[in-house]
Design a protein around this nucleic acid. Structure first.
Lengths: 175, 175
DNA sequence: TATTGTTATACTCTATAACTATA
DNA sequence: TATAGTTATAGAGTATAACAATA
């Protein structure tokens, strides 16, 4: 349990980290804004998934996800296939072009971070990653929730856990 | 020097921390969005300053700063006095109402963080703050640059260091 | 001429609400 | 009825460019 002053300081740091994010955003290709990059990154990391799952991973409303997905689909970076198990759903997966785009993004981002963080040790970077992961976990972010063995497009959901191994969370943003 | 995979993971964490920031944003009063809160917080932390200095601290373009400042000034939370040393400049300072607003913001934010981070130790929170501070420093954020003893509204600037003890940086966003 | 600050404009991201198609 | 996804609309944040006032 930390002190009040520490919480205020942490809030300031969270506000200020936006400047770092904007720096990273400035090196993105003009046709691939941050929202598109996030979609490609998550599909590359977790593999094919439905819209609702992606919305959970992005931690934004489904309507926002739909827009981002439409953008990358329009550019041929992903495909939206019908889900045979549920005709309302669509399965998203990276195309070869999308994979190439993602590789390019990763290259640019890593290069910038390698430049800016040249005096950081491997352990220091790892520690920051670990603490940020735990921070998101403490805020209930599903991206860091325990993952069950992947069963993509599994047959039936049981109880409160859906077919993709993720405890059901709303994809509509809380008021 | 860290590995490529670590940089990619750090980039993902930076992208994902937006969800935490949005959670914090949801508890702000309706008439005090995040931009206004940042202005109040920085004025509370650093004291009176000019627009250009605030733009540096916010790490956003001066035009953005101008809008945020106008918002909080319209609500009487800050005052903009003419700078006797430079008639182009304006000195910003918190009013009593602004101080009260800031106290309210701090209270709400700390309360949410205390709730979410109830199982974090003081040292863990401190470590995260420390690493995030260094991250911003590595990206050249002036907020974490060494501060010289405060000489508000000092007479003359010398060399490339301005009257407020901060090495001159552009307040126009880099292309 | 250069700098401080303001304003107009445009773009991205996000949320709410209404809608459809399906379950 | 409830859920998956789309679209329209609105609001916040930011950047660029043009501008006025002053240095």
């Amino acid at each position: 349990m930390a002190e009040q002053a520490q919480y205020e300081e942490l809030a300031r740091q969270l506000s200020a980290v936006g400047a770092v994010k904007r720096d990273l955003g400035r090196i993105l290709p003009h046709d691939c804004p941050a929202g598109s990059a996030a979609v490609l990154t998550l599909l590359g990391q977790y593999g094919d998934m439905r819209m609702s799952r992606l919305a959970e991973l992005l931690a934004v409303d489904m309507s926002v996800t739909s827009r981002h997905v439409a953008h990358v689909a329009d550019r041929g970076w992903i495909e939206r296939s019908p889900d045979p198990a549920d005709k309302r759903s669509r399965i998203l997966h990276l195309t070869a072009a999308g994979r190439a785009r993602l590789d390019e993004l990763s290259r640019r981002t890593s290069q910038l971070l390698a430049d800016r963080l040249s005096d950081w040790s491997d352990d220091e970077v790892g520690l920051l990653i670990q603490l940020m992961t735990r921070l998101r976990e403490s805020f209930g972010d599903c991206r860091v929730a325990p993952q069950r063995p992947p069963h993509p497009y599994a047959s039936a959901a049981e109880g409160v856990t859906d077919a993709h191994g993720v405890t059901e969370l709303t994809t509509r943003t809380p008021a």
